[in-house]
Amino acid sequence: MNRRKLLSLLGMSPALLAGAQMEAQQPKAAKSGKVAAAENAQFEALNPKGSPPPVKLIPMAPRLDSVHGKTIYLVDTGFMSGGVLLQQMQIWFNKNYPDVTVVFRKKAGSYMEDDPPLWKEIKEKGNAAIMAIGH
């Protein structure tokens, strides 16, 4: 930028800078048109959302009549301290429902990964499951 343009950016009076255009003028010369409250004019706007996939509903498994005499799996998904909480729960079951068999399992792999062998084991040997997530 040359000096004239730079100084006119400062808003310095044209007296010093004959011929330099003021930058902070009106926007494109406003023609006569009506100066009205465009506030109330009506517009339509498009919805910006993408298309979510449909969700397949999964029926929940039938519930047990009671937990007495059953095998319950406690599954630790690997977040901080989930295992310690489940151990306390195991102690609680031993105290309050001594006839319940409690099996503690840590899910293999990182928390994002699935663990099919564990699900298979629970399907074969278990009656119910409690899963701990979150820290």
Partner: peptide, 22 residues
């Protein structure tokens, strides 16, 4: 609890308005 099938997720109509800009 035992319902099965597919459920569509609604993200609203394709166009909003007409209404004021505000």
């Amino acid at each position: 609890d035992t319902k099965t099938g597919m459920m569509d997720v609604n993200v609203g109509p394709p166009v909003y308005g007409p209404d004021t800009l505000d």
